[in-house]
Design a protein around this nucleic acid. Structure first.
Lengths: 242, 242
DNA sequence: GAGTGGTCTAGACCACCGT
DNA sequence: CGGTGGTCTAGACCACTCA
C-alpha cells in the first residue's frame, strides 16, 4: 500500500554515497586503509552485506581497492595498475618500456573561452598551463599541454614536477589532494606542425595522434584538460573493447 | 585441517563456467531468455545467491543482460548499447548520426603469415576478406578491411551483407552463430594513400587513423582481424578511461 | 496475481594476511 | 592467532513486468 518515492534508491547506494562523501571530505586519503566492513556496518546501522555491496560497486569503479586479509584501501595513482589505465600508449614491439616525464614549462594564464568551458570556469579565471614531454627509452613520444584550474593548482611549479619521481597524477594526489577518477579522450589524426616536429624528432607533416583528455575527480568535476600529441612510429594507442 | 587444492575456485565461478559452457554450446542463443535464477539454482544444486553471483559477473562482462521483472537474456549485438561499445567514432559536433555500412567486396583467399598468426590458423588456411565503407550522414568516414577464418565464414557473401539491415556483428550472430565478446584495438596515425584518399574523399597524404582490431568470441578465440581507416575531419575516436 | 530480478538480513564458514 | 575480506546459505520482502 505504501508507495516509495519516485526516485527510489536502495540502501546500499545510500551507504555508497556516505562513503563517497567521506572520501570527498578527505576522511581517508589515497592509499590509506578505510575501516573494516563490520565497523562501517555498525557506524551506518546496516548489515555487513549492505556495506559489502556498496564497497563492491566502488571497487568496480576503481575508487577503492580490496585486499583479502588486509582490508580495503582508497585507490591511488601511485600504483602501476592505475598508471596504465590512463596511459594507453604501448610499444609496437611489445617490449616493456618505462616512461619518463620531462616537464618543459609551467606558467599562469587567464582561461580562454574554450578552457573555461571545459573546466567549468568563467572566462578570465586563473589557470595553470604545463607543457611536458613523455619519453620512452629516452626518446620523445608524447608532447602534452595541460590546463589546470588556477584555484586548486596555484602552487604548482616546474621544480615540483622535476623533483617528483612519480607520475603527475600521483603528485596531484599527494600535493594538491586531487584524485583523478575517470577521463574521456577524443582522438584524431593530425599532421605535425613545426613545434611538434621538433619536440618529437619527426619530419614536419608526419601524421600524429591528437589525444584530447578531460579528467574528472569526485562528483564528476572536471579538473584537467589536456592535449597530447603522440608519435606512433614505434608506439600505438592500445584500447580494450568489452 | 583439510587443505583445498592450490587452484581453489569458489563455487559461483564453477557455476559461471557451467553457464558459459551452455552459452558456448548454443543452449540459449543471443537475445534469448535463459532460465530463472531459481531454476538454475535447483539445476546446479546450489542456492539462488550463488547463481546470482555467477550471473552478476557475466552481466558485468556483457555476456548476459538482466532485466528486472522479465528475466536474464543472452547479450546480443542487435542492441544500440552493444553497438556503440564497438564503434567508438562520434561526430565532433556531438550530433547523433546513424551509421550505414556499405559492403564493397568479399572474396576468398589463403591466409598469409600475419593473418594466420592473428587468427590462430596455419599459413595457407582458407580465409574470407571483406572490404566495406562506413558512412555517417551519407559521407564515407571509415574504410574497413576485414579478415575472417574461412572454416566458420565460408558461406558469407556480399549479397548477405547488402541485404542485412543490421550491423555486421548481428549478422555474424544470426547467420554464423559467432558472438564477439571483446576486442583489442591498436591505433596509429597514417597518411592517406591513393586508395584510401579516394574511398574517403580526402586528399592524398591527409592524416588518418589506422585502427587495427582483433575480436574474440567465447573462450578468447580470435575470430576477426580488421583494419579500419578513419577520417577524423568531422569525427573522432572517443574513449573512456576509468 | 504470478513470476522475475533486486535488496536486505543474519549467521556460518573459508582463504588470506600480518604478528 | 585474530582480524580482514570472500563465499555460501536461507529466508523475507521489494520493485518491476506482463498477462
Amino acid at each position: 500500500m505504501s508507495r516509495q518515492s519516485p526516485t527510489y534508491s536502495p540502501l546500499y547506494r545510500q551507504i555508497k554515497s556516505l562513503i563517497l562523501g567521506a572520501l570527498q571530505d578527505g576522511e581517508w586519503r589515497p592509499g590509506e586503509l578505510i575501516p573494516s566492513e563490520m565497523e562501517l556496518a555498525t557506524r551506518f546501522g546496516v548489515s555487513q552485506g549492505t556495506v559489502r555491496k556498496a564497497i563492491d560497486e566502488m571497487a568496480a569503479e576503481n575508487l577503492l581497492l580490496r585486499r583479502q586479509g588486509r582490508g580495503t584501501f582508497v585507490a591511488t595513482h601511485n600504483d602501476p595498475r592505475a598508471f596504465f589505465r590512463f596511459l594507453r600508449l604501448v610499444p609496437l614491439s611489445g617490449a616493456i618500456e618505462s616512461a619518463k616525464s620531462v616537464p618543459l614549462e609551467c606558467w599562469r594564464a587567464k582561461a580562454g573561452p574554450e578552457a573555461a568551458h571545459v573546466l567549468g570556469l568563467k572566462g578570465g579565471d586563473a589557470i595553470v598551463i604545463v607543457r611536458r614531454l613523455l619519453e620512452f627509452a629516452d626518446k620523445p613520444v608524447v608532447a602534452d599541454e595541460i590546463y589546470l584550474p588556477g584555484d586548486i593548482f596555484a602552487a604548482l611549479t616546474l621544480e615540483m614536477m622535476r623533483d617528483a619521481s612519480e607520475s603527475l597524477y600521483t603528485l596531484f594526489e599527494s600535493r594538491f589532494g586531487v584524485r583523478m577518477i575517470r577521463a574521456t579522450e577524443r582522438i584524431r589524426a593530425i599532421a605535425a606542425d613545426r613545434t611538434n616536429a621538433e619536440l618529437l624528432h619527426v619530419a614536419e607533416g608526419t601524421p600524429l595522434l591528437s589525444v584530447e583528455r578531460i579528467s574528472y575527480t569526485y562528483g564528476d568535476k572536471p579538473v584537467e584538460w589536456r592535449r597530447g600529441i603522440y608519435a606512433t612510429q614505434e608506439h600505438c594507442y592500445q584500447n580494450e573493447l568489452c
